[in-house]
Design a binder for these strands. Structure first.
Length: 230
DNA sequence: CCGCCGATCTTT
DNA sequence: AAGATCGGCGGG
C-alpha cells in the first residue's frame, strides 16, 4: 500500500476555490486516543465548500478578524473549528496566505476506518451514510470539537491530519451553490464527488420555498414587541 | 423519500 | 436576532 503522507503546507496556501476541489478524495484522519481506548478514525473527503474572506459575505471572516474566527487568519494548514446553532461544531482547513482569512469547510466524509467508534460518538446515526454526511456530523463522528480549533493539519500536533493515500480528486467535481447561507448564496463554491452517497445534500434536491405551503401555526403577535431596555 | 420545525447558545 | 446544522415527526 502507498504510504499515506500528510498534505504539505503549500497545498493549503492557495485560493480555497482551488484547494477545495483538490481536497476531494483526500483522507481526514483523527489519530487513536489511547487514553480513552479509542481507535483511529478516518474518512475520505467527499464534499467541501470554499469561503473567501473579505470578498465573501457568506464567510465568517467577511467582517474581519474576531476572537471567534482568529484561526482563519492564521497560517494555512490550520484547523478552524467553530460552534454553531448552539450545539454543533464544524471544521475548516485554513487556506491562502496568513492574515487573509480564507478556508475550506469540510462538509462530508465517506467513512473509512473506526466506524464502530463513530457509531458510538453518533448514536443518532442509523445507517453508515448518516455518520459523516454533514459538517457537524463528521466532527461528532471523529470527536473534533472546539478544543481542536487552531491545531495544525500539517504537523498533526493534536492528532488530526489530512493525508493523501493516492486517490486522485475527481476530474470533474460536481459544483453547486453553498448550503445554508443567505448572504453569498449565489457563489458556486461547493464541490462534491459525483454519485457519492455520503454527501450532506444531494444535488438536484429541490429546496425552494413552495407557494402557499405555510399552513402550520405561525401566528406571531406583531404588535406586542416589548420596548427596549428602559 | 421528502419537507417542516424545534433545540440550544454564541456572536453581533 | 440570526446562524456555514441536525434529527424527529408527519405525509406521500
Amino acid at each position: 500500500m502507498t504510504a499515506a503522507s500528510p498534505l504539505p503546507r503549500a497545498f493549503y496556501a492557495r485560493d480555497p476555490r482551488v484547494v477545495g476541489p483538490e481536497l476531494l478524495g483526500k483522507v481526514l484522519v483523527r489519530a487513536a486516543d489511547p487514553e480513552h481506548g479509542l481507535p483511529p478514525r478516518a474518512g475520505r473527503i467527499v464534499e467541501v465548500e470554499a469561503y473567501c474572506g473579505g470578498e465573501d459575505p457568506g464567510s465568517h471572516a467577511y467582517r474581519g478578524r474576531t476572537p471567534r474566527n482568529a484561526t482563519m487568519f492564521g497560517p494555512a494548514g490550520g484547523l478552524y473549528v467553530y460552534f454553531t446553532y448552539g450545539m454543533h461544531w464544524c471544521a475548516n482547513a485554513v487556506c491562502g496566505d496568513e492574515g487573509v482569512g480564507v478556508a475550506v469547510l469540510l462538509r462530508a466524509l465517506a467513512p473509512l476506518e473506526g466506524l464502530d467508534a463513530m457509531r458510538v460518538a453518533r448514536p443518532a446515526a442509523r445507517r453508515e451514510r448518516d455518520l459523516c454526511s454533514g459538517p457537524a456530523k463528521l466532527c461528532q463522528a471523529l470527536g473534533v470539537d472546539g478544543t481542536y480549533d487552531g491545531c495544525d493539519l500539517v504537523t498533526g500536533d493534536r492528532g488530526v491530519t489530512i493525508v493523501d493515500d493516492g486517490t486522485p480528486p475527481p476530474d470533474e467535481p460536481v459544483v453547486t451553490t453553498r448550503i445554508g447561507l443567505s448572504a453569498g448564496a449565489e457563489h458556486p463554491w461547493r464541490y462534491l464527488v459525483a454519485g457519492e452517497p455520503n454527501v450532506s445534500v444531494r444535488p438536484g434536491a429541490d429546496r425552494g420555498p413552495r407557494a402557499g405551503r405555510r399552513t402550520r401555526g405561525r401566528a406571531q403577535a406583531t404588535g406586542s414587541r416589548p420596548a427596549g431596555p428602559a
